[in-house]
Amino acid sequence: MTIAIIEFGGSNCNLDVLHVLEDVVGADAERVWYKETDLDRFEGAVIPGGFSYGDYLRSGAIASRTPIMNSVKKMADEGKPVMGICNGFQILTESGLLDGALTTNEYPKFRCEWTSLRVETTDSPFTSAFKEGEIIRIPIAHMDGNFYADEPTLSAMEDEELVAFRYVNSEGRVTDEANPNGSQENIAGILNHKRNVMGLMPHPERASESVLGSDDGVRMFKSMVEYISSR
């Protein structure tokens, strides 16, 4: 079992993800450059954060149109788990693997801070190690993290329980003050309709060891590895 870490020009969280997967979780992982076109040897993929192609045009827009994303789509179609973190989330929406879009923060500045998230579902390859309703602590680092979707899409997400995480206050309540970017309904992470693709703006790799201030994020990677092992 090997997990691909997809790299583009401007990716900068790739080594963090590699460290967590290999050194913390104990999984096999491999960095894969965007020119690769065959991902059949991998059982899952993580698209890490960063600023692919300098966020030119729109965040994630150019990366979403590279040949490797056709292979990522193939992985998703085969039921393999794909996680996109921050810029990776933006790439997944731009490529059509996830619904909605990510736009400039409501207050148009880069935000880098700790956030509290509420786990909205444990029915996914990325959240099975959590408890529904659990409050976890994960940092953000983005300028274009404002999630938008039209009302029918949001309604379908609610009906199918496709919202994975929401921004909440320390008591677990959804409030405007707890929302760092203006995302609709405080959405921090979502799933696709098959539930095997997840995008989230917070950085779980930066909260995967207690020395960093939180190890809540490591359970997303452990959930993913356990799912792959069970397939």
Rank of each mutant, 00 (worst) to 15 (best):
N181Y: 12
V197G: 02
N87L: 12
G213I: 05
I135S: 12
E134D: 11
L98D: 03
T115R: 08
M198T: 06
E22A: 08
N70Y: 04
D77E: 15
R137V: 02
S64H: 07
G133E: 01
N14L: 02
K80M: 07
E177C: 04
E43K: 13
S223K: 03
G88C: 12
I136S: 06
R206F: 12
K194S: 15
K73R: 15
V174M: 14
G60H: 12
Y148R: 15
E171T: 15
H203R: 10
C112R: 11
G26Y: 06
D123L: 07
E209A: 13
C86A: 13
G26W: 03
E177R: 15
L39T: 09
F221W: 03
N87S: 13
R41Y: 01
T153H: 08
L18W: 09
N169W: 14
N105C: 13
E106Q: 14
A141F: 10
A4E: 02
I136Q: 02
S52F: 04
R65D: 03
F42D: 04
A149W: 05
A29K: 09
S170E: 15
V25C: 09
G145N: 05
G182K: 04
L21T: 11
Y227P: 00
G96C: 07
L200K: 02
V46T: 03
E78R: 14
N179W: 13
V20A: 09
A76M: 02
T175D: 04
G217L: 10
H193D: 12
V17L: 11
N181V: 04
G79D: 09
T121K: 07
C13D: 09
V25L: 08
D23N: 15
D215F: 08
K109G: 13
R231N: 11
M157H: 09
V20F: 10
A141N: 11
G79C: 07
T121P: 12
N87G: 08
M69T: 04
V20W: 03
T175K: 10
L162S: 07
G49R: 09
G84N: 09
I136G: 07
D28A: 13
L97I: 09
N146Y: 05
L191I: 08
E161D: 15
E209P: 01
E226C: 00
